[in-house]
Amino acid sequence: MKGWFIPAVLLPLWIVTYWNLQKLADFVIDDLLRMTSGKHLTETLRFFIFEVPKVMLLLVLIIFGVGILRSYFTTEKTRAALEGKSLFSGNILASLLGIVTPFCSCSAIPLFLGFVEAGIPIGVTFSFLIAAPMINEVALVLLAGLFGWKVAVIYVATGLIIAILAGWFIGKFKMEKYVADWVFSIKSNQESEEEEEITFYERIQKGYQSVKDIVGKIWIYIVIGIAVGAGAHGYVPEDFLGSLLGKENWYGVPLAILIGIPMYSNAAGIIPIVSVLIEKGVSLGTALAFMMSVIALSLPEIIILKKVLKWQLIATFIGVVAVGIIIVGFIFNYVM
């Protein structure tokens, strides 16, 4: 009872607020502040007052939902599910599990070693390691909020395809020999203890906890991002970057990826930049390619992986993922 009470009150409240945000923003601008509509400053402010709560509401709901969903998954269960899977179906499963298994890129090495120890092929392991950071619920919400659900769905689908195919490719090339030799000699002497079942009430608590953790950390980036997006509108020439990274230039996508690799940011930090890029004439495919390369290929992570992988495998990993992102960028530019 206790566990259901708060969601049962908050959810209807959420729905009512969400569907009346435009009215609320109009009320604040037109009636409370009595600003002249149509003026540049008025409309910028109206956009800001509407967009910030909209994105925040979506974030809270989705992160809450994902927090509950993730409480059903652990890296141990995921590893058990992947043991003994054949290459292609293993890659698909690993990519899907990469989305829902709680994962922090600082755990990339122990996770990699744990998977290798269980005999999971490295191609399958890579599918997991690519999907986990690349497909991110915060990015999903921000893309949906700023560019619509169609773009958000394409982002998830293409991210999955890259993770599946890149992992499959690495598996096909039998790159086990490029894993540092000491890796295979690792044996944990601790039997993994069985997980204790947790109640649904505790899962809801986990949902709240992840909202607190994630939203508490990123809200400021989102407010700044939307403010910059709203403020830049009309002040910086629209085609400022368009000539360099617009649709017409074939090299726009690869260039965006090259710029993105050494940069490292989480999804929340990068999307405001992406929205400004698009605002300034960068095509959607190029901007998304940039975003994916920033969050999926990062120099710090590569340096961490260097401890367990030889450079041939790291180069293949970067190459395969970069090519995948380039293809996605081109498809986006072509379709949209």
Binding site: T75, E76, R79, P102, F103, C104, C106, S107, I109, P110, L111, L113, G114, F115, E117, W182, I186, K187, S188, N189, Q190, E191, S192, K307
Partner: peptide, 12 residues
């Protein structure tokens, strides 16, 4: 990391 792995943890 080798010592950490001996405890059998996959998440730090």
């Amino acid at each position: 990391i080798v010592e950490i792995m001996q405890f059998g943890v996959m998440t730090t």
